[in-house]
Design a protein around this nucleic acid. Sequence first.
DNA 1: TTCTTCGTGATACGACCGTACCATGATGGT
DNA 2: ACCATCATGGTACGGTCGTATCACGAAGAA
Lengths: 211, 211
Amino acid sequence: MPKRVDHEERRTQIADAFIRVAGRRGLHAVGMRDVAAEAGVSLRLVQYYFETKEKLLFYGVQHLTDRFTARVGTRLAAAGTDPGPRATIEAILLASLPTDEEGRTFHLLYSSYSILSVTDEALAAQPFLDNPDAAENALTGLLEQAQASGLADPGADARTEAISLLAMTATMGTGILVGQRSPESAIGVLHHHLDRIFVTAETAVAEEGPI
Amino acid sequence: MPKRVDHEERRTQIADAFIRVAGRRGLHAVGMRDVAAEAGVSLRLVQYYFETKEKLLFYGVQHLTDRFTARVGTRLAAAGTDPGPRATIEAILLASLPTDEEGRTFHLLYSSYSILSVTDEALAAQPFLDNPDAAENALTGLLEQAQASGLADPGADARTEAISLLAMTATMGTGILVGQRSPESAIGVLHHHLDRIFVTAETAVAEEGPI
DNA sequence: TTCTTCGTGATACGACCGTACCATGATGGT
DNA sequence: ACCATCATGGTACGGTCGTATCACGAAGAA
């Protein structure tokens, strides 16, 4: 047998190139030849590892979520060992905000895929919509945990607040992308709501008092 | 001179066809020939009234916001003469939610244009981003007015809450589009926050008490 | 009536894109 | 040493898309 190359590694390399060019010129504008040039390989190679453009598109969204998951993991690790629920939630939300080049690419492409899936049923059937639900469940769990620890307002609806935080983060992220909103403004709004949900110790005691 | 046709009316007719096909197949998939077929005219006609596809695209987003403004106006009129600030805000937010076919098209296309403007600087230079700021200012004013009337929590930050409500509406609208969230769930979240901001009369009096 | 100009149609052109086809090293098992 | 097979490159084909070109009917102005 001949050279035996690690196919999965090559696919990753090409998918990375795909994400780079898509992040630069937009998902709609990316072509097979662009990906090949960006990856430094021939057009034939891209065809060889992804027979069709549709398969490259599908592999791309999977690779994108993998890399985003890794990004969140890194941020969480940087938050120190066993950070509180609030620090954990903040890390997740801030990692989703396009405040750096990587975050910008993530947000742009994830939004593009979402919008595209509305009119492309083959893409909609692809299981990449698991992520929003996963994030929603994770935040809900963290909020409930905070409530049990007396860190968060016990009267709050954990799931509703989780949905709200994620929804605000997403739209404000787009606002940052189009230059309508500054990252500081977005972070300020998020902090405002976190301050509202995560009561300070004294406030918690006071609220648990007379009622 | 020959037949003298109302150009603006023809442009509106073609732009409507453009919006219909774009809402059905996605903004990225719409071609000049599709628009012509949908409008029941020849390809040449579309070229005649919009020399280039880019101009059709730009005219389309303007026409879209015009129609959306009219939609909001209709909803407000249906809310009765001089509704309270809360009813007004609710009408604006619910009009933005894709709960019917028209709303679905509006949300899909407006999101598509926004994402497209990130990587298309010619589109980004087009003044269609005025709308988000206008809505934000309108909601901020309504909230301040409600605070002055004692209808809303005087301790709330009107602009922050306006930004939050609009941001949540937008993301949850996309959630509805992709089938991830139900309209009822989205409306429920919005009501939750409106209930939080718009305190009842008794609560308002209580809060203005001891402090 | 005639003529100029607007409105409309049919069709052609050039570019690009995804895909298919053909060719050829390279390599490791037998 | 040989050859089956994997990896890779070059190139061609069919289709579509935006745009340009040519042509003609219609109608008001002279």
